Computed example of a mutant assay.
Amino acid sequence: MKIRMLVEMSGTRNGVPWPPRGQVVDIPTGEAQHLCASGIAEAALDHEASGTETATPPPSATSAQPPAEVTTPPAETKRTRRVKAAPADDTTGADTVTE
């Protein structure tokens, strides 16, 4: 039975790598039916046995690159953090530090 592969499969079948997605291959009917039932392949018509899929996306989908994203970094700000209170004999009275 001839089937068309709908997915890429890793590994080998009888020592031969699986055909690429879109290619038509002739394999035993039982195995072909199993692959079709699981969604890995679909039955191919005899006149479709030409080989690899040749579809290409429309030119508009591949020709124009989107513009690069431009962002402005945030403004630098001073950060303040709390520190442990100074011992009672410290006369500065400061308990914050500005970095």
Rank of each mutant, 00 (worst) to 15 (best):
T80P: 00
G39I: 11
I40Y: 04
A55N: 03
E8G: 04
K84E: 11
H47D: 13
S50N: 07
V70W: 09
T80D: 12
T56H: 05
G51N: 05
T71A: 12
P28Q: 10
A68G: 10
I27A: 04
G22M: 02
V7D: 07
A43S: 08
G39Y: 09
I3A: 04
I3G: 02
D26H: 08
H47L: 15
T56F: 07
P73H: 07
L6R: 10
G11M: 10
T72N: 06
G39L: 10
G15H: 07
D46I: 06
Q23N: 03
G15P: 01
G15S: 04
E8I: 07
T54Y: 00
P66T: 10
E31W: 04
E8N: 12
P87R: 14
L6Q: 12
E53T: 01
P67L: 15
P57W: 11
A44P: 02
P73V: 05
Q33M: 12
C36L: 03
R13T: 09
M1C: 05
A41T: 04
D26E: 15
G39R: 04
D90F: 08
E42W: 02
C36Y: 01
A32F: 09
V97M: 13
C36R: 00
V25K: 01
A32S: 06
G51W: 00
D90L: 05
P74Y: 04
Q65D: 10
H34V: 07
H34W: 06
M1R: 05
D90N: 14
D26N: 12
A86W: 03
L45F: 03
G22H: 00
T71V: 10
H47E: 14
Q23D: 05
G22N: 01
D95G: 06
S10W: 12
P57Y: 11
A49C: 10
T56D: 08
H47F: 14
P59V: 11
T71R: 14
E53C: 05
P58F: 08
G15D: 10
N14F: 09
G51S: 08
G30P: 01
G22Q: 01
V25L: 04
P19R: 03
A75Y: 08
I3C: 03
P87V: 08
L45H: 08
T96H: 14
A88P: 00
P87W: 07
T96D: 08
V83L: 13
I40P: 00
Q33T: 11
I27V: 14
A37T: 06
D26G: 02
G93P: 00
N14T: 08
S63D: 13
H34S: 07
A75H: 09
T80A: 13
L35W: 15
A88N: 11
A68T: 07
A43L: 10
R82N: 08
T77C: 09
T52K: 06
R4I: 02
T71E: 14
P87Q: 09
Q23A: 11
